[in-house]
């Protein structure tokens, strides 16, 4: 854990968001198992610290792009769980009016480009957002969340080349959860650390403990600061672990039992709780209270979402074109 001092309010804010993400994902998992919610879904249990640590270093008007696994990113950037749950239920009160669902979760008014589920699809979009900020002389930054698998897509090379030569205000954040779906990272990469790929573009590349929200926050603060000052992009590799399947239908049998056990002991929320207690930033009772509040917030979201109306067929004809740009 980083040695710096933070306000208790800041630390508990990080903790609360991580718990909100975990409990949201768990609630959604059971909505599926109970047969209330159809389809499949990609969840981020175990990866909460990457999104929360990184988004803590952003301003409200900075933007993020996300992936097929977007719930954590959205909560971390400030999307209310009411809007997200309604979207999962396909209701008109959802953040995309029920037309996006899990893999297009987002809200541009909160700086969340609706998620792009195609692997690597967000990389050129984030780069383009950063180019727009630079051309308009706005002091905003774009953060591109991507998985480890995305770093082997062709568009990764094209986008990072452009980001680097034009010194764009963008942070490329790799959430390395050790598997591209079921393929081990080591099987498809010759470098030891994915951050070494930054060398090709002569941009800073760092490998960070992605299960430590403060380590992520510190690295992000530096990268965001230099991006905002016009010094160009950075590549952050946030090493984490997915303690659930790639998707709902994936029992993750390719994750060895020993590795899974170690990962559960290293999962970010339990670790951060221990840190908060050791630093006397909070009592256990306060952490319990936060968990209770979070659960109540999620239950309210489920209730509202279930009661909300479904879109009408003719609503499919709305929101097709942006006017007044």
């Amino acid at each position: 854990m980083a040695e710096k001092k933070y306000s208790n309010e800041f630390l508990l804010g990080l903790y609360r968001k991580m718990v909100l993400i975990r409990h949201f994902e768990e609630r959604v998992k059971f909505l599926f198992l109970e047969g209330i919610m159809p389809g499949t879904i990609h969840q981020c249990q175990g990866q909460e610290a990457t999104a929360v640590g990184l988004c803590a270093a952003l301003n409200d008007d900075d933007v993020i792009t996300s992936t097929h696994r977007p719930h954590g990113h959205c909560i971390a950037k400030g999307l209310p769980v009411n809007d997200m749950m309604a979207e999962l239920f396909g209701k008109t009160t959802g953040c995309c009016k029920g037309k996006g669902g899990s893999m297009h979760m987002g809200d541009i008014s909160r700086g969340i480009v609706p998620a792009i589920a195609i692997v690597g699809g967000g990389i050129p979009v984030a780069t383009g957002c950063a180019l727009a900020f630079k051309m308009r002389k706005e002091r905003r930054v774009a953060v591109c969340f991507m998985g480890d698998g995305a770093t082997n897509e062709g568009v990764f090379h094209e986008s990072l080349t452009m980001g680097a030569i034009w010194k764009l205000p963008v942070i490329y954040a790799i959430e390395n959860n050790l598997y591209g779906a079921s393929t081990p990272v080591k099987m498809v990469n010759m470098v030891k650390h994915l951050s070494e790929k930054a060398n090709t573009y002569a941009m800073p590349g760092l490998t960070i403990d992605g299960n430590d929200p403060l380590a992520v926050y510190e690295a992000a603060k530096t990268a965001v600061g230099s991006a905002r000052e016009g010094e160009g992009p950075s590549l952050l590799e946030l090493v984490t672990y997915r303690i659930t399947g790639h998707s709902r239908r994936d029992p993750a049998l390719y994750q060895p039992a020993e590795e899974k056990k170690a990962a559960k002991a290293n999962e970010p929320i339990g670790r951060f709780a221990k840190y908060l207690l050791a630093e006397k930033a909070a009592e256990q009772s306060e952490l319990d209270r936060i968990a209770g509040e979070v659960d109540a917030e999620i239950e309210e979201a489920v209730k509202l979402a279930m009661a909300a109306p479904l879109p009408k067929p003719e609503d499919a004809l709305e929101d097709l074109f942006v006017e007044g740009v």
Binding site: F32, L33, E34, G35, P38, G39, T40, I41, S247, R248, R249
Partner: peptide
């Protein structure tokens, strides 16, 4: 038996 999303 829940629908575990395997399409089976």
């Amino acid at each position: 038996m829940p629908d575990i999303g395997t399409a089976v």
